[in-house]
Nucleic acid binder design. Structure first.
Lengths: 215, 215, 215, 215
DNA sequence: TATTAATCGAGACGGTACGTCTTGTCTTATC
DNA sequence: GATAAGACAAGACGTACCGTCTCGATTAATA
């Protein structure tokens, strides 16, 4: 990077291969403003009123500053989740603290937490936007999976593994499937809006899942 | 600017409530060409390279003809599903014929069919596009739910109701939850691409779900 | 810019080779509005406050409409001159009607006309802008030379040729040089602002030029 | 947004009147590099590929260093001319040494020199760029006139004054007009590219001008 | 010689305009 | 009298420069 030839014949720096900026010189306040602006806009103005120009305008920031640090508006959104900006703003932990003892009660607590997050506009609006962005941009999808979704699911999986050791979950079940059994129904209902996301619903799912996993 | 006559004789139609065209005069071949063009483009060019202009160009049709009959490109997509154009083109029935006898075998058949549909590009690409479109356009979402998603889920639900009468499904379970237990895991894995969509996976889910529903 | 072809095999339409639009479908009022907006902006807001976006804004027109018909803002300017929009707006003919009889009087009339045009803001501002644009864009320069400058100079040349036949101009002088002798001094003083553009100045130049051309 | 302190102790300097830097501490090599970079870029990359950023890049210099010492890129250009950097690099004296004796021969020498300078790319490219810059920036125009153009024209004027004393130039002619008669035609042809800039052309103009000025 | 203060290279920043793209409406010429 | 073709106003896209603003790291003049 350092001893670059400042003048002529460098080969036009292909679009994706642009010299990456120096993170140490980054303005933290600006970064914060951009993440907040993006979240504000999603929550306020609906699904895809979200625009890089609108973010820049609301954050009082040049467009280039956004493009300098993020490849797309979806990446801004992802970072907002990774930085826990969304939870901080909504006070809605996706999954409550994972306890132990009564397995069924733990499942219920987890599912109620999940359902409440999905029912909370200021959390679900950004998450829905991110989910859309993931579909439209495979690159972003890969990163979101690796840094946000997988770790989140792995937490659940680790908890279920412990439960399995304790004999609360059948030994012959694939834990990945178990995780999806837990998360899938709520996710499906949320994304397609095929029914209400209430505590009663969470409890009904709890019942079925505990049955499914029980020894 | 131009010599527009603002006082035309349109009879008090509100902005969105534009005088709908006469369906009897509709050109069936054109309609077919538009649906096919849309599906072709989605399957070929990825997620949201889909453009009204591109559809019109490929179908050899004026843009206005599309806007005359559909409110958005998502609606075109929905209609393609409702007309069974997607299945006809892919020979991938979403759910195999619902039989009876061995309940576990039926579940396995249903889930393998679902998984195969989700794994088939020429089916999953349009469905993914429609799923995105639904998120971005609540109006379209409502219509898709009513005319496509709900009926599809209701088929499953009816089948499960019969199974319940036969004693293959616990009486104390909410059938809507049962449907989601069946569909949710696969849907979640497909949409977020968190794992492979194989027959083995379908069978693993079958195992868990049969467990969950069993008396 | 991005080489995304939504559909099939058209060969990417290189930047300059774009399909030219159909002139018969052009909106004449829009065209007029664009030319006027451009002239207004130049006269009002100085030299190169002129922007395609500003023209579009003031004309109440989409940017694309400008780019559809002109390759650059300079081309808009050129067309305004070719359409005689500038003269119509300023009532300042560059060269007065070419008479005959007293040659010196004709020269004086021509030079006074020229000087007055160059001294008239609402004519000289667009012309100066065009002159700049010509320097920055050789392509535009070629077109301006062929369609605006050369014809204009050729008018003068034709008049001098007649004078030459009448014996008012030496036979051994190159008429192109004669034209430049007439126009060059005024042009130089105007462009570099090295002195006042008054009738007295025009008369002084007249004196010298008549001397130079005299038999 | 950022933590700027608006109450800094800058001593009442108006916006434009920023505290000028200390010339004694200036890095001469850097200055030289900037002037050369600007000239290189103009000659190489055409008319207004010239950018402050490009100059800084090529000179291996921070943008601020340029803005510290010059108000605009045009000012850099002007200084390159005032420092005789252009002539040094092109070995093309604008006006040959003004001799005496045969007046017509002197005029011919002057005009041939002028024409050759205007025909020499590495001289005319910067000069054209400067001429453009002058049009766009009245402030720069004033300075260029005072420090570059006027002195240059005054040299010619002084020479003509001597010739007038010697009886080679009519007494009743305005010397400013005489200077423009000499320079205007070439300037006009050069700027608008309306014809070739050859020695023959210079001689033809010489002929006409000597006629015009002759007693 | 050590201290101080400025310039220097580098480049992030808020802006503005670029030239392109797509949207949804409106217009025209053709069949 | 409907339709393909496409012009149109609007506005977002992602890029390039503008001119200002930090940041260390020299570097030159003063103490």
């Amino acid at each position: 990077m350092s001893a670059t030839r400042p003048d002529s014949q460098q080969p036009a720096t292909s679009a994706t291969q642009r010299r990456s900026p120096d993170p140490t010189r980054r303005n933290a306040a600006t970064r914060r403003a951009i993440l907040d602006a993006a979240l504000d806009l999603i929550v306020a103005s609906g699904f895809e009123m979200l625009t890089v120009e609108a973010i820049a305008r609301r954050a009082g920031v040049g467009k280039q500053t956004i493009y300098r640090w993020w490849p797309s508006k979806g990446a801004v959104l992802l970072e907002a989740f990774l930085e826990h900006r969304v939870e901080e703003r909504t006070e809605t932990p996706l999954l409550g603290p994972l306890n132990r003892g009564d397995f069924a009660a733990d499942v219920r607590r987890v599912l109620r937490g999940t359902v409440r997050a999905f029912a909370n506009t200021s959390w679900e609006a950004p998450y829905r936007a991110l989910t859309i962005a993931i579909q439209e941009d495979p690159q972003l999808g890969a990163e979101a999976r690796e840094r946000l979704i997988r770790p989140s699911l792995d937490d659940v999986r680790a908890w279920l593994a412990t439960a399995q050791e304790h004999g609360d979950v059948r030994a012959d079940i694939d834990l990945d499937v178990a995780v999806e059994l837990l998360v899938g129904p709520v996710f499906h209902r949320w994304l397609l809006r095929t029914g209400p996301l209430s505590d009663e619903y969470a409890d009904a799912v709890t019942d079925a899942v505990v049955h499914a996993l029980h020894t």
